[in-house]
């Protein structure tokens, strides 16, 4: 059981625990943001680089620092390891740089984006970014693609976190989903834009940290902060059947997996539960869902988010290709 110290707080963790997991055990105040890591998806993480931290002491056995920042989501704790996150000005600066890169080609058209209010990129840029952009070139745009009847992909908003690729790999039987091209023009695709037809494909929507993969049955029905999340369950033969229902008045507008404190699905749900069961009668209601840090109606959080200083007005252009 290695003991690791993050920003001066020490914790003992099981062998094989990553720095990010250890930080989450200690608490939010030392936890780096994670845009691509997803606990339940194997080999996720390492891509976005927002979770970088400084290892100022590798271990008791080897007290040297690691010269470069490491991705905390993919680096295991060692006995006696010392890590600096928010106590390292270097890391705060470096992370600002990463956020700037993530936003460089991002439309930031939150006012017309269905994810607004529960978008991890909004939170990230608000909490870890700078309040101006230095990117002055045209941003890349893609056409929207329908992935079957329920899911829409809008690559323009994708941050290439690879989470949906891992879902396709690990949760569904046939992988019909991957990355095309390389570098700045990489895109998520089903290659032949045929329908993703699989019982668990809807989980891509939940794992997507931004508004790139959205629920077509919910799109633009309502802003999320006008809906009420309610925990509910049903007997499902395909999945755990434990969900959050999002109500507006008496109508269930959408169904999602339950999210934990870190915005991750507690358990994945099947497409039947997600897309087909939209009557209150389908469900046993448990009561109001608790609101996670990264969700919706942390309302005044959201209000701060759209402060004009954050987005230059001329960045917010509607898209021609809609």
């Amino acid at each position: 059981m290695p003991k690791v110290t993050i920003d001066g707080k020490t914790i003992e963790v099981p062998q094989g625990t990553t720095i990010l997991q250890a930080a989450r055990m200690i608490g939010e105040e030392v936890t780096p943001p994670a845009m691509c890591y997803y606990t339940s998806l194997k080999t996720s993480g390492g891509y976005c680089r927002t979770c970088i931290v400084k290892v100022s002491k590798m271990s008791e056995a080897n007290p040297n620092p690691i010269p470069k920042p490491v991705a905390s989501c993919r680096t295991n704790c060692e006995e006696g390891m010392e890590v600096m996150n928010y106590t390292s000005p270097e890391i705060i600066e470096a992370r600002k740089g990463v956020v700037e890169f993530l936003l460089a080609n991002h439309p930031l058209d939150c006012p017309i984006c269905d994810q607004a209010g529960e978008c991890h990129l909004q939170d990230l840029s608000y909490e870890h970014g700078s309040d101006d952009t230095r990117y002055e070139f045209e941003r890349r745009k893609f056409k929207k693609i329908d992935l079957g009847p329920f899911i829409q992909l809008h690559m323009t908003r994708c941050i290439l976190c690879y989470r949906c690729v891992k879902v396709a790999d690990q949760l569904t039987d046939h992988r019909v989903h991957g990355v095309l091209n390389r570098g700045e023009v990489s895109e998520i695709s089903t290659y032949i834009t045929t329908a993703i037809d699989n019982d668990f494909s809807g989980n891509m929507i939940d794992v997507c940290p931004v508004g790139a993969l959205t629920d077509k049955t919910f799109r633009f029905k309502s802003r999320v902060w006008f809906t009420n999340p309610v925990s509910a369950h049903r007997d499902c033969e395909k999945c755990c059947g434990k969900v959050t229902l999002w109500y507006k008045g008496d109508d269930v507008l959408r169904v999602t997996a339950r999210k934990d404190k870190w915005g991750e699905a507690e358990e994945f749900i099947c497409n039947d539960c997600r897309f087909e069961k939209k009557q209150t009668l389908d469900w046993t209601i448990e009561g109001p869902a608790k609101i996670s840090r990264h969700s919706v109606i942390s309302a005044n959080h959201y209000e701060k988010m759209v402060e004009p200083s954050l987005f230059k007005l001329n960045d917010i252009k509607p898209f021609e290709d809609q």
Binding site: V98, F101, I159, E184
Partner: peptide, 20 residues
Amino acid sequence: HHESCGQCSPCREGTAWMEK
């Protein structure tokens, strides 16, 4: 820029930006 595989954000976005 042309050869970046595009997995991680600093290289994917940064190489393209520097070229521009």
